[in-house]
């Protein structure tokens, strides 16, 4: 059986074959791992709280990110934004008002839409079918007060969302203090 050898460089021309091999492997790796053009609606400007524990969500198709920030630093009034479809059908991040001009809670209605379908009620088929696997991810500022978060949790409870996740930053476990 004949053995393949790396071809030798000729007359000052470097052999680029190993370079191309490595670069191609890197490209395939990045294409598989990188999420390009996939927007979850998460507001990356929000500084989320840190935690040691945490899990990954595998099925991002059933997840709605709610970005929660206070109106001002000391305010207890939340601003909630999420990826929703606009009038033209395109998905974009928009503010959901807890009480709009007509008195409707847009957060509850949006959650019910994802949870129960177009009719916003339990039961139904096709576009009105319930989605029991629907989850919410709350991406909140680590400094905001619980009073800001509470209306969003109430909205989740009203829409019968079964799982609510808090988006947190990974924190390394603190080493125990030395006894010496």
């Amino acid at each position: 059986m004949s053995k393949h050898h790396i071809p030798e460089a000729h007359g000052g021309h470097p052999n680029v074959t190993p370079l191309i091999d490595v670069v191609m492997v890197l490209i395939v790796f990045f294409m598989l791992v990188a999420k390009i053009g996939v927007s979850t609606g998460a507001d990356t400007k929000i500084k989320v709280p840190a935690s040691i524990l945490g899990t990954d969500i595998k099925d991002m198709g059933n997840v709605l990110f709610l970005n929660v920030t206070p109106q001002t630093k000391e305010s207890d009034v939340p601003i909630v934004t999420a990826n929703v479809k606009n009038a033209s059908g395109a998905t974009e991040r928009a503010e959901l008002k807890l009480q709009n001009a007509t008195g409707q809670n847009e957060v509850v209605n949006t959650l019910k839409f994802f949870r129960f379908g177009k009719d916003l009620k339990r039961g139904g088929t096709n576009e009105n079918a319930d989605n029991d696997n629907f989850q919410v991810v709350i991406r909140g500022d680590f400094e905001m007060h619980y009073a800001v978060l509470e209306p969003v949790l109430i909205a989740c409870a009203e829409a019968a969302v079964k799982t609510v996740n808090f988006n947190t930053a990974k924190k390394m476990e603190e080493a125990p203090a030395s006894s010496h």
Binding site: A34, K35, G54, T55, D56, K170
Partner: peptide
């Protein structure tokens, strides 16, 4: 690419 390796979720 967005790798998102620095964050995770606490579920309730």
């Amino acid at each position: 690419g967005q790798f998102g390796g620095a964050e995770h979720y606490l579920a309730s």
